[in-house]
Amino acid sequence: MLRFLSAALLAVILFTVTFAVNLQAPLYEAYAAQNNAGATAVTIAFAAYAGGLMPALLLLGGLSDRIGRRIPIALALILGAAATAVLVQFPSWTSLVTARVFLGIGTGLATTAGNAYMAEILGAGRARNAALIVTSATSLGFGGGALATGLSLSLQGPTFLPFSYAALLAAAPVLAAAAFALPKADCPKPVTLLRLPVFPSGTWVFGAAMALAWSTTGMTIAVVPLQLSANALGGWTGLVIFLAIFTGFLCQPVARRMSNGQALALGFVLIPLGFLVLLAGVWQTSLVLVLAGTCITSTASYGFTYLASLAEVSLRAPDDRARATAGLFVYAYCGFSLPVIASGALADTFGLLAAMALFAAAQMSATWVIVLFWRKGRHPARSATEQELGIV
């Protein structure tokens, strides 16, 4: 029972950390308007999140191995609250950039420590169950924040202090204190504070798939809302961002019944398909197609690819899960940020729709190349799950 309660509390904490990440997404355009900023500025602010997260992953991915899991997780909650407080006090594009950096650092600390901690709490041999809980909690958090702010704005009208912000500011300090009530399931090691991520052998394709999948999610969160606003559909931004992640959460139980390799292959099919449907919806100003495409990409990104990749690196690096998770997210957040910035610059020059079309072409080309290399390998890397089960 204690193990179940501890896992549940850790899941709530991880949900709250990631809830803060996209909390401000429906207000991106409003913050940019405070500084008369364009699409490039919006996407730079969005990608500033990776600017905080990448150094945390590259240098501090194994920090929790040295100081324990609880301190980085509690610090992530405090950083989320601080970022939100900055936006409340100084609503502007500059503050948005600062807040996104704080949120990136917090996410880097929490996700690397949280995945390893969940596996330690549940016990040896349940790494895949731990990965499912972590991906479920974080998927709900990433999507829930944007939806909560969207609903708050629909009830309150235009404001820089929506109810969702107040809820986060109230909950984060309480949960940060509660984090220290979690059991010491880990055994801190006498290692250096600064530890680089590791990339387990045979997992490159899972990392590449994460980069591809999350680049699509990044486009959906950062660029698509700008086009929705241009088409007088801005009120649907929160729902679109929520569906961009939540639909994947609903598909995770299905992904769990598949091998990691099978789930990854399905993700490769659904990622470009979903974005093409979304692009058609934006082109035709069809909300139905936009929502359908968003759901398909979410199914691929947060349903099959995310769970398969996180489970795979956990299984292949049982003694170094925090750093292996950091390595996976290095792939993921390079994809999450760099294409979005490029698309924002293209949007200011050629228009949002043209930028999205160019992204779709690049996405399909990258998918084809990755799958080709995966299949043409002399000895294609089988997933750790497949190896354990003896699947050929």
Results as ranks from 00 to 15, higher is better:
8 A>L: 14
8 A>W: 06
11 A>K: 00
11 A>L: 05
14 L>D: 07
15 F>Q: 00
21 V>K: 02
21 V>S: 11
25 A>G: 03
32 A>T: 01
37 A>F: 02
38 G>E: 13
43 T>F: 01
49 Y>R: 01
51 G>I: 09
53 L>K: 09
56 A>C: 15
62 G>R: 01
66 R>S: 07
69 R>S: 10
71 I>P: 00
75 L>F: 11
81 A>Y: 09
87 L>E: 10
95 S>H: 03
95 S>K: 04
97 V>K: 02
98 T>D: 00
99 A>K: 03
99 A>H: 04
101 V>K: 07
106 G>K: 03
110 A>M: 01
113 A>M: 07
115 N>R: 11
122 L>H: 06
125 G>S: 06
129 N>D: 15
130 A>W: 08
130 A>N: 06
133 I>Y: 02
145 G>C: 10
145 G>L: 05
150 G>C: 04
151 L>M: 13
153 L>G: 08
161 L>V: 12
165 Y>D: 10
166 A>G: 11
173 P>F: 04
175 L>R: 04
178 A>C: 11
179 A>Q: 07
193 L>R: 12
196 L>R: 14
199 F>H: 10
206 F>S: 02
208 A>R: 07
209 A>R: 02
210 M>A: 14
211 A>D: 10
217 T>L: 05
221 I>L: 14
224 V>P: 09
226 L>P: 01
226 L>C: 02
229 S>W: 04
230 A>S: 13
230 A>E: 15
231 N>F: 00
232 A>F: 13
239 L>R: 04
245 I>R: 02
246 F>K: 01
246 F>T: 12
246 F>D: 09
251 C>F: 15
254 V>M: 13
256 R>P: 00
257 R>H: 10
262 Q>V: 12
264 L>K: 12
270 L>I: 05
270 L>K: 02
284 Q>K: 14
284 Q>W: 06
285 T>H: 14
287 L>T: 01
295 C>S: 14
296 I>G: 02
300 A>T: 03
306 Y>W: 11
316 R>H: 05
317 A>R: 01
321 R>N: 01
322 A>P: 09
322 A>L: 07
325 T>C: 08
337 S>M: 05
339 P>T: 02
342 A>T: 12
344 G>C: 08
345 A>Q: 10
347 A>P: 08
352 L>V: 15
355 A>Q: 04
357 A>N: 00
359 F>G: 03
360 A>M: 12
364 M>V: 13
367 T>R: 09
368 W>L: 15
370 I>E: 02
373 F>C: 13
373 F>R: 15
376 K>L: 13
380 P>E: 03
380 P>I: 02
381 A>F: 12
382 R>Q: 15
392 V>S: 14
